[in-house]
Computed example of a mutant assay.
Amino acid sequence: MLVLALDTATTAVTAGVVELTPDAVVPRSVRVVDDPRKHAELLMPGVLGACADAGIALQEIDAVVVGTGPGPFTGLRVGMVTAAALGDALAVPVHGVCTLDAIAADATAPDTASLLVVTDARRREVYWAAYDGSGARVDGPHVESPAALVGRGLSVTAAAGGSAAGLGWPVREPAAPSPRGLVAAAAAAVRSGVDPGPLEPLYLRRPDAQEPGARKKVSAR
């Protein structure tokens, strides 16, 4: 089974083709560009480039996996809307996975007792989630300041993600999700063949833009 993996929840614009077998997750191609301002411009060229690198046509994709955040509102929407449109055009299922879970899938190793995944949430805050040695999420995702996160005194042995440095834990790669990590996080659902249902973004907080309130009444003098 050939799976197209996408993520725009971090500063990285990620696309790749992964071969999912009954017992393995094998990367066929990877396209990653770190540019937080050009998610929309870079994603589809990355998708087409990843397919070309894998030696396949886009129409040969059997499923799509996309990171659903947490991430900034605008960037996150680019990946999810693109994934939904591709799924509709190709008539293939689209599976959403937590972006932090995808990073954990890459960072968890046989010697991992516990792991923290931390990414940039802007506004001097971070998104984070904690995982056990198997890579299963045990807490989060949450959004708060790095100081508040450190103050929790979490019992983890390592940290991964783009904002993991400087928190006091040993840092592991990757900083952003890879196509392999995205598909690994969704592997059980993709293999099951179950309808994944609608995509649900993990914003964790409201967007900066707000609808204007009702106009104040001006009393006549």
Rank of each mutant, 00 (worst) to 15 (best):
E41I: 02
P179E: 06
S145I: 02
S155I: 00
V150N: 03
L182M: 05
D101L: 08
L115M: 06
A5C: 03
D139Y: 09
A83G: 07
E211Y: 15
A91K: 14
R37K: 11
L86E: 14
G69W: 12
E41L: 08
G87N: 05
A105R: 12
T10F: 00
V81Y: 07
A160Y: 01
C98D: 14
Y203H: 10
V65F: 05
G153Y: 06
T68Q: 10
T11Q: 13
V13G: 04
K216W: 10
V81D: 03
T14P: 01
A107C: 12
A158C: 08
V156H: 06
V218S: 12
R215M: 14
L42H: 08
A109H: 11
L202C: 14
A57V: 11
P146S: 07
G67F: 14
L199C: 10
L76E: 08
S145Q: 09
V126Y: 13
S178I: 04
S29V: 02
A84G: 11
P72T: 09
T74D: 01
R172F: 13
G133H: 10
T10Q: 02
A109I: 00
V26E: 15
V183G: 14
S178H: 03
V33D: 04
G151C: 08
A214P: 14
V117C: 11
Y127N: 09
G46I: 03
A89R: 02
S155D: 15
T68K: 02
L43H: 03
D62Y: 02
P174L: 08
K216N: 13
G55S: 07
A159N: 00
S114E: 09
I56S: 08
L4R: 00
D139K: 04
V118E: 12
A184Y: 07
D7F: 13
I61A: 15
A105D: 11
A102M: 14
A50K: 04
T108N: 07
A89M: 03
G135L: 07
L2E: 03
P174D: 06
E125M: 15
P174H: 01
K217C: 04
G166F: 09
A129P: 12
L167M: 00
A187M: 06
A220I: 14
I61Y: 14
A85Q: 01
V47T: 06
R77P: 07
A209E: 15
A184W: 06
D53Y: 01
A102D: 03
A24F: 12
G161K: 04
V156I: 08
G49L: 08
A83K: 01
T21Y: 01
S134C: 06
W169T: 01
T10K: 05
G140W: 11
A83M: 06
S114M: 03
I103N: 03
Q59K: 12
G71V: 08
S145R: 12
L100F: 04
T99P: 12
P45W: 04
A102C: 10
R77D: 03
R206G: 10
K217E: 14
G153A: 07
E200P: 02
V65I: 12
G197Y: 13
P45M: 07
H39C: 01
A187H: 07
T21V: 02
L116R: 00
T8M: 10
A186S: 13
A50N: 10
A12T: 04
A175Q: 13
L86K: 01
A89H: 05
V92I: 13
E41N: 10
V118H: 13
D195V: 07
V33S: 04
G153S: 05
L199E: 07
T8F: 00
R191Q: 07
V92K: 12
D35N: 14
A130L: 10
